[in-house]
Structures are given as C-alpha cells and as structure tokens.
C-alpha cells in the first residue's frame, strides 16, 4: 500500500461532510437524526457518541478484514459494533449522565444504525486501517454536522434558544411545532431538498467549467447549453416558496442557509 496523502484525507473528509453525507445524501441513520435533534446539545452529544463508535468499529473491522469469514461477516460486525456501543454507553453513563439520560434509548440503538454497518460493509472491510479510521471520522463528522444544522433550526424556531441560551428576542413567539415530531420530519425534508438544490447548482457549475475549456473550438454549442441551464435554474428557484404550514418561519431560515 502506498503512502496516505493529505489530499486523500481532504477528499475523504469533504465526501463525508457533503457529497456522501450519511444523513442528507445517503439517507442513513434517520431514526436518531429525527429523534434527538430537539436541541443542539443533544445533537452534538449524539454526534460525538456516533463518531467514536464509527472510528473504533472501522479500525477494528479493517484490522480483522482478512480473518472474518465471508459467510458470517454481518454477525461478526454486529458483535464488534455492539461491544463498542456498550463501552460508549457505560462511559457516558459515568461521565455525562445528564446527556445520557436525555438521549435515552438512542445510545444503545447506535448498534442497529445503518450508517455503521454500511461503512463496515462497503469501506472498512476492504481498505487498510488508516483510510478506514479517516472514513469513520469523516462520516461521523458529516453525521454530526447534519444533526447540528437540523437541531439548530428546530431549537431556534421551536424554542428560541441555541444550546439552551436564549437567542430570539422576547417578541418572538416560539413555534412549538418544530420541537414536536412533525417538525422533525418537515425540517429534515426541507434540509434534504436544500442539499439537492445545492448539489444541482454545483453540478451545473462543474458542467459549465468543463464546457468552458473546449469553448475555444466549439464556442457556440457550449454557450447554448449553458444558457439553457441557467434559464432552467431561474424558473426553478421560485418554486419552493409556496411551501408549507409555517412558510413565514421556514422561509427566512432557508434563505439564511443558502447565503
């Protein structure tokens, strides 16, 4: 195996954060993402627990990748993962008891979180130790990032606070719906849509760039497609506006994030 370069590290991290974000793009681990995001503190705590388990299980599975027989690999992964989850559970119970109580059931449920099993199966079981560890870190950070954004929107709109500190002015009436389960579904729906939009814009950007290089020879057709694409774009932007039950509250938030 050749040396692991800084550039590879960068790509892996960017993949975990954006292009292959486990929650917003791969749609894995939705249960905990929806359940614990009533406050930013919970989201960060859950993200940290998840990252710790992901890194440890990825390292371990990568180390054992030549020894685990193919037929029983899933069972072996589950045993390894649940061992680490139990360790994290006991540590949190000892040192972060309040956080442990507010996350409740979802710490032991990390065992059946599809993100970990998916990374074990598709990455750690095929790659050497160092990239696997970085993959665990990248995916964990991506998960934490998605959860934190989701929780920030929900806590700010639903309670007017961030990490328990009051942010919104007194005149703001908290929209309780964002703290309720339905608010979780709505906010995550909007976030994924926003992510889709950003990815589309980025793809278009890349396409334009690629079209600009051979533009010297074939300037005409390239320009045409570019124009067409930007026309599509301007038609589509206003569409998400007539949206939902709480348009007044939701829209400004979306704008803010887009900027």
């Amino acid at each position: 195996m050749s040396k692991y370069t800084l550039k590879e590290f960068g790509t892996q991290m960017m993949d975990g954060l954006f292009a292959k974000n486990p929650v917003l793009v791969q749609m894995l681990g939705m249960c905990s993402a929806l359940a614990v995001t009533t406050s930013v503190t919970n989201a960060l705590g859950m993200g940290l627990a998840m990252t710790a388990v992901l890194i440890c299980s990825n390292i371990f599975i990568s180390l054992l990748r030549h020894f685990i027989p193919k037929q029983i690999r899933i069972a072996a992964y589950i045993v390894i993962i649940s061992g680490f989850v139990t360790a994290v559970q006991l540590l949190m119970q000892a040192f972060l008891n309040d956080l442990y109580k507010s996350l409740g059931l979802f710490i032991p449920l990390i065992v059946v979180n599809c993100i970990i099993l998916a990374r074990a199966e598709s990455f750690a079981s095929k790659q050497p130790v160092l990239p696997s560890a970085v993959d665990g870190l990248a995916m964990g950070v991506g998960y934490t990032f998605a959860l934190t954004v989701l929780a920030a929107v929900r806590e700010l709109l639903g309670a007017g606070t961030l990490c328990g500190v009051k942010i919104m002015p007194d005149a703001y009436e908290p929209a309780i719906i964002f703290i309720l389960p339905s608010g979780a579904f709505l906010t995550l729906g909007f976030l994924i849509a926003l992510m889709n939009k950003l990815m589309d814009v980025q793809k278009e950007h890349a396409a334009k760039k690629a079209a600009a290089v051979p533009a010297a020879e074939a300037a005409e057709p390239a320009e045409e497609t570019a124009n067409e694409e930007s026309a599509d774009e301007s038609v589509e932007t206003p569409e998400p506006q007539p949206a939902e039950t709480e348009p007044a509250a939701q829209e400004p938030e979306q704008k803010k994030e887009e900027n």
Partner: peptide, 23 residues
C-alpha cells in the same frame, strides 16, 4: 413537486403532515 423536492424530501414532508395528525 419541484425538482429538489422529488423523492425523499417530499415524502418526509408528507410524513410530517401525518405526524401532525397523530400528535
């Protein structure tokens, strides 16, 4: 639905509305 909302996002929003009924 609008292009960005196709697939999972619109399903999530529908789930949110049903959840509102269940709440």
């Amino acid at each position: 639905p609008p292009k960005s909302f196709r697939g999972v996002p619109i399903a999530m929003i529908a789930a949110g509305l049903i959840a509102m009924a269940f709440s």
